[in-house]
Simulated scan of single mutants.
Amino acid sequence: MANKTLLINRVAVSTFFFVNGFLYANWTSRLPELQRFFGLNNAQLGSVLFCIALGSMAAMPFAGWLGSKFGSDNIVKIASLLFCVAIPLVAISQNEWVIRLCFFFLGATSGSMDVTMNGQAVLVERLWGKIIFSSFHGIFSIGMAIGAATGGIFSNFQISLISHLVIIGFFGVLLVLWASTKLIKDIPMETEIVVSEEKTDKLLALKTILPFGIIAFCCMTGEGAMVDWSAIFMNKVIGESEVLSAWAFGTFGVAMTIGRIFGDYFTLNLGKQKLMLIDAILAILGLGITIVFVSVWSTFVGFFLVGLGLSTIVPIVFSSAGNLKNISPSAGISMATSIGYTGFFIGPPTIGYLAEAFGLRVGLGFVLFLFVLMAGILLFILRKK
């Protein structure tokens, strides 16, 4: 019975990861239509989308604190339902300031959901008794893939934006309501220790997680670069069609999903730090091939290797952050996500500036430098052990 209950807990937490990826991919798949609906040029759209980053970065530390105080199981329910509500809100108005507010709300709810569902994943992994963390992120990637396909179907049948987003938002609510009844009770951490000792514990935790946070920053900068620039690289640098360019990003996404599905197996057999070092080397090799050998096939091979390399780094970092002593899973994860997502949101615009001045190959060279830095930190951690 206990094993059956734990399996249900795992399925429930996986549902949150699926909903997050599924809903997010649905609205992003129709972003060109949203841009026309808003009547914004590319620069204005970029400014509006940055509100998502601001919302996420503002909410993540707060969500970590709330998870520590009230339990991740309680906060993830609220954050997830609000996220489902936020999805259709992005298409309710053409007023630029209302749009900015809705996108800020979308980012805040998505970021809060991200922190607290990862906190629940840590608890499931602890009770499961073996490494399973990467599988949750694999479910997220599967949700993204299905969500993108679903968005394409709605678009193909010319279903209105608001109808589409309301339908999938309602579907998300149904899944969240079911999963919310099957979560693990997260007991808030006791606060009986002296304030000075509490500060010391948090400082030690921050010092411990900082190297992993930097690793997450480097990794998520790479993820953001692939999301925003892989198709453009194939189109502008290689000179191929938009269809083939979309496949370039798809190659990266498929590799990420494969890597996360098998990530727990390799983590168990190789260890966290060793696997991350191998991942970093794969990412360096893949992006190096892409930049140096400018051809269709080298780009496909390179992006596939980058996807494999980046696939398990963030799940491992989040798992490590969520298992720090004297700090709750949500608080530890919020530290790592706050640092990591900075790279995801700030990295792609930085690449854009470099690409404008020196070309996209140089822009991606900045990401390659971060991958080398990431490998250096991991090598230092391994030697220190």
Rank of each mutant, 00 (worst) to 15 (best):
residue 108 A to M: 13
residue 315 P to W: 12
residue 275 L to C: 02
residue 22 F to G: 01
residue 115 V to W: 10
residue 60 M to P: 06
residue 31 L to A: 01
residue 352 G to D: 10
residue 168 I to N: 04
residue 256 M to N: 00
residue 243 V to K: 11
residue 1 M to F: 13
residue 197 E to L: 12
residue 114 D to Q: 10
residue 336 A to H: 07
residue 365 G to L: 01
residue 103 F to L: 13
residue 113 M to F: 12
residue 154 F to G: 01
residue 253 G to L: 02
residue 219 C to Q: 08
residue 9 N to W: 04
residue 224 G to H: 00
residue 52 I to A: 13
residue 174 L to K: 01
residue 285 L to W: 03
residue 158 Q to F: 10
residue 137 H to M: 05
residue 56 S to L: 15
residue 221 T to I: 01
residue 3 N to C: 05
residue 338 S to Q: 14
residue 347 G to Q: 08
residue 25 A to I: 00
residue 345 F to R: 02
residue 24 Y to W: 14
residue 139 I to C: 06
residue 242 E to Q: 14
residue 118 N to R: 11
residue 84 C to G: 07
residue 123 L to R: 08
residue 38 F to M: 04
residue 320 S to C: 02
residue 320 S to R: 14
residue 186 D to P: 06
residue 285 L to C: 08
residue 321 A to K: 14
residue 207 K to G: 00
residue 263 G to M: 03
residue 38 F to L: 04
residue 187 I to K: 10
residue 71 G to S: 03
residue 147 G to Y: 12
residue 325 K to V: 03
residue 325 K to T: 09
residue 98 V to A: 09
residue 323 N to D: 10
residue 320 S to Q: 12
residue 100 R to S: 10
residue 209 I to G: 06
residue 385 K to M: 14
residue 267 T to L: 15
residue 171 F to I: 15
residue 357 A to H: 14
residue 280 A to R: 06
residue 261 I to G: 08
residue 51 C to I: 05
residue 322 G to H: 12
residue 209 I to Y: 06
residue 106 L to W: 11
residue 307 G to R: 13
residue 295 S to I: 02
residue 380 F to K: 13
residue 35 Q to G: 05
residue 377 I to H: 04
residue 309 G to Y: 11
residue 3 N to E: 14
residue 122 V to L: 05
residue 373 L to N: 00
residue 59 A to T: 09
residue 165 L to F: 15
residue 200 T to E: 11
residue 218 C to G: 02
residue 369 F to V: 15
residue 372 V to I: 15
residue 173 V to P: 06
residue 51 C to N: 02
residue 29 S to C: 07
residue 375 A to S: 14
residue 168 I to G: 03
residue 9 N to F: 02
residue 10 R to F: 12
residue 143 G to E: 07
residue 338 S to G: 00
residue 325 K to D: 14
residue 241 S to P: 03
residue 103 F to C: 01
residue 376 G to E: 03
residue 312 T to H: 00
residue 240 E to M: 13
residue 347 G to K: 06
residue 151 G to V: 08
residue 336 A to W: 15
residue 117 M to S: 08
residue 13 V to R: 04
residue 211 P to E: 01
residue 353 Y to S: 09
residue 368 L to Y: 11
residue 232 I to K: 09
residue 96 E to W: 13
residue 295 S to K: 01
residue 135 S to E: 10
residue 268 L to M: 11
residue 212 F to N: 05
residue 184 I to Y: 03
residue 161 L to Q: 09
residue 148 A to R: 08
residue 25 A to V: 07
residue 293 F to D: 06
residue 368 L to R: 07
residue 374 M to A: 12
residue 192 E to N: 14
residue 303 F to A: 11
residue 359 G to P: 14
residue 22 F to D: 05
residue 116 T to D: 06
residue 69 K to S: 11
residue 269 N to H: 14
residue 3 N to L: 12
residue 213 G to A: 07
residue 271 G to M: 05
residue 378 L to N: 02
residue 130 K to S: 15
residue 106 L to C: 08
residue 337 T to Y: 09
residue 106 L to T: 13
residue 130 K to W: 05
residue 370 L to S: 03
residue 226 M to K: 02
residue 284 I to W: 10
residue 210 L to H: 08
residue 278 I to Q: 04
residue 69 K to M: 09
residue 202 K to T: 00
residue 385 K to S: 13
residue 125 E to W: 03
residue 38 F to H: 14
residue 344 F to W: 07
residue 204 L to Q: 13
residue 62 F to P: 03
residue 57 M to N: 12
residue 144 M to R: 00
residue 291 I to S: 08
residue 230 S to E: 08
residue 21 G to I: 15
residue 187 I to T: 14
residue 77 K to N: 10
residue 384 K to D: 12
